[in-house]
């Protein structure tokens, strides 16, 4: 008997010849992967995405520099000095918050999170790229503007969070605060200092504090008024 030849009917299945049962058996027997299975899989994926969106909105992702208790990060001395054209990798405010400080050729001091916003690779300072250097992610050719932290090329979806830096008279570099992606340093500092240090927030002119812009009278690292610039 060839493989395509039918076996003789009989012996199980549908001995009484009920056509409804025969139809049910026939439909149920085609147990190959069907579009219905794909529809169920798509529904499951959709539910997973919905749960993921709720989780993200609820805060399962950690933002750079965000403490669990919501307090402002303490100032941290990161270097004794930083010469023009050089960069420094450090961690601020926590040990897992990688950051990079760059002293540009014109003396501007900038600091950013060193975690690429694309897939969290390390962002490097490349002085030889661009007109005045670039922050470069080698994983997928992501490029960030060194002065603003915004994306200038590649796949990163948003700019780098900033790290507010200040330099004291002795040349030491201090990290005094962090911002979120796309947030200005002033807005980030005001957000972090508004609750914990209202007096300091008033001194740097945060809205709603009733104060105005005022330069620090003492070389207190936490009293930086022009972060990101040479003091």
């Amino acid at each position: 008997m060839s493989v395509t030849e039918q076996q003789q009917p009989g012996g199980g299945g549908n001995p009484d010849g009920d056509p409804r049962e025969a139809l049910h058996d026939r439909i149920a027997a085609d147990s190959l992967t069907t579009r219905r299975d794909y529809l169920r899989i798509v529904t499951t994926v959709s539910g997973g995405l919905a749960v993921g969106g709720l989780g993200v909105a609820a805060g399962i992702l950690q933002r750079h520099g965000e403490e669990p208790d919501g307090k402002a990060p303490a100032p941290k001395r990161i270097a004794a000095q930083l010469l023009p054209g050089e960069s420094l990798a450090f961690r601020y405010p926590g040990d897992e918050d990688r950051a990079v400080a760059v002293r540009m050729d014109d003396g501007t001091l900038v600091g950013y999170s060193a975690v690429c916003t694309h897939l969290a690779c390390a962002v490097l300072w490349r002085k030889d790229r661009g007109t005045e250097g670039e922050l470069y992610c080698p994983c997928h050719e992501g490029v960030f503007d060194a002065r603003t932290g915004e994306v200038t090329a590649g796949p990163p979806p948003r700019g780098l969070p900033k790290v507010a830096l200040t330099e004291l008279d002795d040349g030491s570099i201090w990290a005094v605060g962090t911002t979120r992606s796309g947030e200005s340093i002033e807005a980030g500092l005001c957000r972090q200092l508004g609750d914990d240090r209202p007096d300091l927030a008033a001194r740097i002119g945060c809205p709603g504090t009733g104060g105005g812009a005022e330069a620090p009278s003492a070389p207190d690292p936490s009293a930086a008024t022009t972060p990101g610039r040479r003091a």
């Binding site: 995405l49 919905a50 948003r158």
Partner: peptide, 23 residues
């Protein structure tokens, strides 16, 4: 994810609502 990382939590919740409606 983008708006959450930028600190716009309210917009993130709207997006989460859109995801749930789509589901």
């Amino acid at each position: 994810v983008d708006v959450w990382m930028e600190g716009r939590t309210g917009t993130a919740w709207w997006g989460a609502g859109f995801l749930c409606l789509s589901f």
